[in-house]
Each structure stands twice: as structure tokens, then as C-alpha cells.
């Protein structure tokens, strides 16, 4: 699986990019916000977006030619 993704890595760049942005820009930053647990909980609002991005990731993987 990983070898296949690595071989066609460019196809996954948009997902990698947005996951990275979400993880560093939102998730890690939210942990720096003290005394406001609600702001971490607010992350639940991004679930639909993250779900759609993951669906696109899986579809891209399934569409790749077999090795």
C-alpha cells in the first residue's frame, strides 16, 4: 500500500497538503490555547470536511493502476 502511494505520490499531494494545514494550523495550534477546552471541541465542526477529503483520498488510491 505505502509503496503504491509513494510511487504515485503526486496524486496525493492535495490531500497531504490540506491534512498538514489542518493538523498544524488548527489541531496543534488549538492545543496552545490555554483554559479554553471548548476551542479544541470546536474541531468537531471540521469532521464533514475531513471526511470528504478522506473519501477523495481513498477514491484516488482505488483508481490507481495495479502494480
Amino acid at each position: 500500500m505505502w509503496r503504491k502511494i509513494w510511487k504515485h505520490k503526486v496524486e496525493f499531494y492535495p490531500y497531504f497538503s490540506i491534512y498538514l494545514f489542518w493538523f498544524v494550523g488548527s489541531f496543534l495550534s488549538s492545543l496552545r490555547v490555554q483554559n479554553r477546552p471548548g476551542i479544541v471541541t470546536l474541531g468537531l465542526i471540521t469532521i464533514p470536511s475531513i471526511l470528504l477529503i478522506t473519501i477523495a483520498f481513498v477514491k484516488t488510491y482505488k483508481e490507481l493502476p495495479a502494480d
Binding site: G25, S26, S29, S30, V33, Q34, I39, T46, P48, L52
Partner: peptide, 23 residues
Amino acid sequence: VVGGLIAMGTDLWADPVATSPEL
């Protein structure tokens, strides 16, 4: 429309975090 909504969905968390008093 869907692209705009996905982006807005991620922004709904990123912005309140980035504008918090700590950051």
C-alpha cells in the same frame, strides 16, 4: 459550491484558534 463549503468547514476551526488571545 462544495469546494467552497469544504474550505469554509476547515476555516471554521482554524480562525477562532488563530485569533485566540494566546496567539
